[in-house]
Simulated assay, not measured.
Amino acid sequence: MTSDADDALSWDGDDDPPARKRTDRSEPERALPEGWEPVGKDSDTVGRIAADGTVIAADDPRPLSTPMLLLVGVIGGVYLLYTVGWIIGGLNLQGSALFLVPAIMYQVAVWAAVLAPALWFAAVWLLTRRSPGWVRVVGFIVGAALLVPWPFVMTGVVGA
């Protein structure tokens, strides 16, 4: 009997880990083991070696860990609820607020408040790509504390 069972469990090229191809061949690719961070002059050109042996380019952002991914999802959901809260709260206060400010000023303020959670999330996400994880967490938590939709919290859905 031949080794058909072994052939069914293997694939040609299983032994070779895939490596990323370099488009610029002027300088050999430098890489550090996983867990090591480059420091000093030209440290932004040094890549890292992943656990499977592939070289991660220096400009690739680090993948999110599972707890960070969960935190980003929960905070994104909270910010989405904040957006809905600002819409409902802003519409409920429209009648009483127009006695104090002109209509165009009120509309600009409401739309700025509605867009603020999405803009905060995008700003923290983009500006903390290369920062440590705790910086991103602090940015999200500060935004969650500052952007609470107070008109909705104070009056609720039915209004005052």
Rank of each mutant, 00 (worst) to 15 (best):
M1T: 13
T2N: 15
S3W: 09
S3G: 10
D4R: 11
A5V: 13
D6V: 07
L9W: 12
L9H: 13
W11C: 11
D12T: 09
D14H: 14
D14Y: 12
D15L: 03
D15R: 00
D15C: 00
D16A: 07
P17R: 06
P18L: 10
P18C: 00
P18W: 03
P18N: 05
P18K: 07
A19D: 13
A19F: 13
R20N: 04
R20T: 01
K21F: 14
R22Q: 14
D24H: 06
R25E: 15
S26D: 01
S26F: 04
E27M: 11
P28Y: 04
R30N: 05
A31V: 09
L32T: 12
P33V: 05
E34Q: 14
E34M: 12
G35R: 01
W36L: 05
E37W: 04
E37I: 07
P38A: 15
P38T: 15
P38M: 08
G40E: 04
K41A: 10
D42H: 15
D42K: 11
S43R: 11
D44I: 03
V46C: 05
V46N: 06
G47K: 03
R48C: 01
I49D: 01
A50H: 09
G53V: 11
T54R: 15
T54D: 03
T54C: 07
V55W: 00
I56A: 10
A57Q: 03
A58K: 09
D60W: 06
R62V: 07
P63D: 12
P63R: 12
L69Y: 10
L69S: 14
L71C: 11
V72K: 12
V74T: 09
V74D: 00
I75L: 06
G76A: 02
G77W: 03
G77H: 00
L80N: 01
L80T: 10
L81W: 14
Y82N: 04
Y82H: 03
T83A: 11
T83G: 15
T83E: 09
V84W: 00
V84F: 08
V84L: 11
I87T: 02
I87D: 04
I88S: 08
G89V: 06
G89D: 07
G90S: 06
G90R: 03
L91I: 15
Q94D: 08
G95R: 15
S96A: 13
A97I: 01
F99C: 01
L100I: 11
I104L: 11
M105S: 14
V108R: 12
W111H: 11
V114K: 06
L115F: 12
L115S: 07
P117G: 04
A118G: 13
A118R: 04
F121I: 08
F121T: 00
V124A: 05
V124E: 10
L126C: 07
L127G: 11
L127K: 09
T128K: 14
R129M: 13
S131N: 11
W134F: 14
W134Q: 08
V135C: 13
V137A: 15
V138P: 00
V138F: 02
G139K: 13
V142L: 12
V142R: 02
G143R: 01
A144S: 09
A145N: 03
L146S: 09
L146C: 15
V148M: 04
V148S: 00
P151T: 05
M154P: 10
M154N: 13
V157D: 01
